[in-house]
């Protein structure tokens, strides 16, 4: 009898420790910053597209007044050397901003 009770007690302790541990983990997680989000089209261009399109891996795409819908389609489907980009990487709203940024004729070279 006694033996079983202390056995149960040990199991209880283990479960308690498990939950405490679980709480300790989530507390640590809560302290940290929220997930990443893009600021604007220019940022996405600089941190993804420019690495290819500004160094002749891909053709120049800025200042060509490419239709926004076309840009969005190329980004989502990829094209030969260009990988496709998922909504998980560039969400739909950010992609719209990016396409506007690229197709807009800017005064800068």
């Amino acid at each position: 009898m006694k033996k079983t009770r202390s056995g149960n007690y040990i199991v209880g302790c283990i479960i308690a420790i498990f939950f405490v541990a679980g709480n300790a983990w989530s507390a640590q997680d809560e302290k940290t910053t929220p997930g990443f989000a893009w600021k604007d089209g220019a940022e996405i261009y600089a941190k993804i597209c420019a690495y290819c399109h500004d160094v002749q891996v891909g053709p120049p795409i800025r200042n060509r007044e490419l239709p926004a819908a076309y840009i969005r389609a190329v980004v989502r489907n990829g094209r030969f050397a260009m990988p496709a980009f998922r909504a998980a990487e560039i969400d739909d709203e950010s992609l719209t901003k990016l396409a506007e940024f690229i197709s807009r004729r800017s005064t800068q070279p």
Binding site: Y51, C52, V55, Q56, V57, R79, F80, A81
Partner: peptide, 16 residues
């Protein structure tokens, strides 16, 4: 440092 220049490889033959 960040670079994607190595993707030029896919322009060699073309066609992805």
């Amino acid at each position: 440092e960040m670079t994607l220049t190595e993707f030029s490889l896919y322009n060699w033959r073309g066609g992805g």
